[in-house]
Design a protein around this nucleic acid. Structure first.
Lengths: 225, 225, 225, 225
DNA sequence: GATGAATGAGGGTTCATTCAT
DNA sequence: TATGAATGAACCCTCATTCAT
């Protein structure tokens, strides 16, 4: 889902190409593309955009510099492609808790747990920092990241709440706002602490559970009929 | 309050110096120091740490390169000084609402308004991005920023809540957590949107008011006896 | 002889490499390496270590700055490589006179002539100045230069004298000292004059011959049985 | 003796000036001039011309930058003045052994000892290195140093030898050459070793004595009637 | 006359990008 | 097509020199 159209088209062209000539056209081999992005991920996320050198990426990816420039016009485009992919994988499998029926509180807690665990993991925090750090210079990048990542999550939550309202389980005057509140209650405290590096070790599962439970309960006290 | 003693002492020395000899010692003229920091602010906050060049700052500050290096040992120290100042001004005059007595709800709303307005202003958002962007590489910097900024705010809120509890106005099982929740409820939605540049125009005063009011009410519904 | 093994091995690897792929690996093309050193020689020897700028060398060598830094980690290493090479060529073919049998006086005069001519040549004097000028700051460099250059020569002379003693041709109480004396007698006067630039034009062949002959005769008067 | 005329003239002007107004004219106070040179000596001789910074000298001399530039037009001229002075003091009190009458051998040994001790002392070696290092770039400086230092010594030795010949104590075909030979025999071995930093600790008094004695004896064996 | 804060050209070095192989 | 050696602009920083105080 949320398939990346650019890549899909590229994939198709590539497949056709492969069938015809047995070898992908320049800049069209999806395996090599992936290999480059994987190398780029290691380097970009660990060092940030500017401190990462194309040579580092070359080494991490195990391809030559020329090849990278066949697949990506420049450093910035490579970075954007990476962020695109990060965003895609980052928010995968986050919303299953909201899809299953069952008790509202249980669902919200399960979702909150998944969300908090994911979004405060070192890997994801580093990726977010990298995006935030660059988005003064490449504003679309941050916007696109938010739009295709957190915003999607927000919509899922809103849909869930709407559904619960329809079922008479909740009474919410402003669903959009309530969805934001729920998310932020689940991340209370540690999101910014991790983002700024005030905390280096992740919150433990127990801590997340306590925070999420408390957050969901605050939420429900406010919005339960 | 939260005055930076180092600077104060430097200021005093410098004033004495100025009176005595009419010219500030090297690296001791607070006006020039401020001029440099102001130039640095423009450049660093617009471009981020790495993309900002000392030449750019030179130009923006209207001083020569050598002069900058008299006042700051290197790029990093200049950046830290800037962030230190940003942090200081950023969180100034934020907590008066919590100090006055009066209705709890009113106080929280007034505080929430001030906080949200400040923290989502373009200026402050850009500064936060810059810090977040660098803190993979200079982790202490982000930690220090958080510790001396948001954390202080958190403590003020916690103290306020404790006081209200002592007065029997609130019933809160975990004050620390509740303080985080309050803050995040006041920023619900727009903080991350601004941080990632999904929103470019600030939230209008009305929107902030609505969000903060709703947030505070959620909070009070949960914690009022 | 006194071949530098490191370079030899590098040369071999490089040749194999060249045969295999037609293009030398980064920092492995001996022609380019030589080209850089040749440029460095002009600049370093004319201006001394500090006054020589990498830009000057870039220009003199006809390669780009980046390329120099592929072959040599920094200015100092480039300089050391140059000195190493200077030393190697400087003392080449100096000792043949000592290896052939024949009359002791003739051998010593032939050696003295070769030594004096070489060591007071403008090229070699300039190189020595450059080394001497830096060796307050990079002491190992001067020490290494002496150890692998003049000291080797000293040992050759000492060996020759020992041999002559064994044959009963000379009677020397302190061979080490005598070897130094012989060398210095052959350079009497002009070595320091050239080193300090008091003399700019080299000593003519006749002058060298006179000095060396006189020096050797003083030496032999003292040490002939 | 060998008074530096520039300074003498300056001194005179300065004295007149002092008498007239009680305060030296700009750039005319010999005590301040000396103070600057003394600071410069520490810095230049320890670090070499290029690595020495005017700020270092400022600090070492305890005068302001502006003052230095009143007394010396630029770094180079200050350096030259220093070298001039070094040269002057360096060869002071070296020739007394040659002036007293007495046994030729004793005189030569005493002179040789003084010469070798002085010229291989760390201080003097460092000064020589500094001069040699710069004299590719400022050729007159090295030439002048030689001319007013070592060359003077050479002339003293030559005069002594001439005198001894006149007295029938020596038989020397080429007095100039013999004078050089004597000097170099006294420095045999350690001069170059020290110059190149192959030896760091000075030759001990005993070693000098042995070398000088042996050198003088070689010399006398050759030139005694 | 003396001071030292300010200047800015130029230092060594890095690295995104190109293009011959 | 893929490679990586080569390029050179731009980086941060130093320091000889000037000139307002």
């Amino acid at each position: 889902m949320t398939a990346d159209r650019t890549v899909d088209v590229a994939d198709q062209q590539d497949m056709l190409e492969s069938l015809r000539r047995g070898r992908p056209a320049a800049g069209q081999d999806p395996a090599k593309r992936q290999q480059i992005i994987d190398g780029a991920r290691q380097v970009f996320i660990e060092m940030g955009f500017d401190a990462a050198s194309m040579n580092d990426i070359t080494r991490a990816a195990g391809v030559s510099k020329g090849t990278i420039y066949v697949y990506f016009a420049n450093k910035e485009e490579l970075f954007e492609a990476l962020i695109e992919e990060e965003r895609r994988t980052m928010f995968q499998d986050l919303y299953s808790a909201l899809e299953l029926g069952g008790d509202v509180r249980d669902s919200l807690i399960r979702y909150g747990m998944a969300l908090a665990a994911k979004i405060t993991s070192d890997k994801v925090i580093m990726a977010q920092r990298t995006v935030i750090g660059i988005c003064e210079r490449i504003p679309e990048l941050g916007a696109r990241f938010y739009e295709r990542g957190p915003k999607i999550g927000h919509e899922r939550v809103a849909a869930f709440l709407k559904d619960a309202m329809a079922k008479g389980l909740l009474t919410i005057p402003d669903i959009e706002l309530a969805a934001y509140q729920l998310t932020d209650l689940c991340l209370s405290g540690y999101y910014r602490q991790k983002l700024f590096g005030y905390r280096t070790e992740g919150p433990a599962r127990d801590e997340i559970l306590a925070t999420v439970t408390a957050g969901v309960d605050v939420f429900l006290k406010a919005y339960k009929p």
